[in-house]
């Protein structure tokens, strides 16, 4: 059960496919591999979490409420999402129309020794999101399905959830900027302008 995923897609190819559709959307990434993937396509409208495991979806909710006219996408891993499952119920109750959550699901904790997560053992994140009140949810396993789902992450009425099954390929950590205060200020200045960001 260790080291194998039901997914076959490459996580960095998935990241590149999704961000190609981002437009002016705001993106939050969860700690671990998803944040490293995002580091290879860094953007001032992306806020990368390097800690606070379980935070990503809820950071997305607060951002989506604050910026109702902007699309907000959370991208995170299956382990990070499983640590914050209550967020499904909270987001489902709040129903922000501008929020989407994409889990890059390799069915393993790849940063800590590739132990299986519960998605490897049958936990169905898309079914959970739907059961908690997300407007729509799906699981994506092929390049064709990803090509169809990627634009919907930035357009479909939310809250919208997609689990994207990927293989367990690991990549070198893309160590870019990881100071949270800098990342926060960069994001806020780009979004709000310097006067509002730092007043």
């Amino acid at each position: 059960m260790t080291g194998e995923s039901s997914g076959t897609m490459d996580r960095r190819a998935v990241m590149r496919t999704i961000v190609a559709h981002r437009g002016d959307a705001l993106i939050v990434t969860g700690l671990g591999s998803t944040t490293y993937d995002a580091g290879t396509v860094d953007h001032p409208n992306t806020f990368c979490l390097w800690g606070g495991m379980g935070a990503a979806a809820m950071v997305g909710l607060g951002l989506a409420i604050a910026q109702p006219d902007r699309r907000v996408l959370v991208m995170t891993g299956d382990g990070e999402m499983l640590m914050g499952l209550g967020a499904f119920a909270t987001i489902g109750a709040q129903r922000p129309p501008n929020l989407a959550v994409a889990v890059i699901d390799n069915e393993h904790y790849s940063e800590t020794g590739m132990q299986a997560t519960h998605t490897r053992r049958g936990a169905d994140l898309a079914a959970m999101a739907k059961a908690c009140g997300f407007a729509a949810s799906e699981t994506v396993r092929t390049e064709d399905e990803l090509a169809a789902a990627a634009p919907k992450l930035f357009s479909q009425d939310g809250p919208f959830f997609v689990a994207i099954k990927v293989n367990t390929q690991r990549y070198p950590m893309s160590i870019r900027v990881r100071d949270g205060a800098y990342l926060k200020d960069r994001f806020r200045e780009n979004l709000l302008g310097a006067e509002r960001a730092f007043f």
Binding site: L26, V28, F47, G52, G54, A55, A56, A57, M58, V59, G60, L61, G62, L63, A64, I65, A66, Q67, G84, G86, A87, T90, K184, F187, R188, L191, L192, R196, A197
Partner: peptide, 15 residues
């Protein structure tokens, strides 16, 4: 703890 994360997102968005 959801609220701590949510309000981090709120601040990122200017709220």
């Amino acid at each position: 703890q959801e609220g701590v994360a949510m309000l981090a997102g709120a601040w990122l968005g200017g709220d």
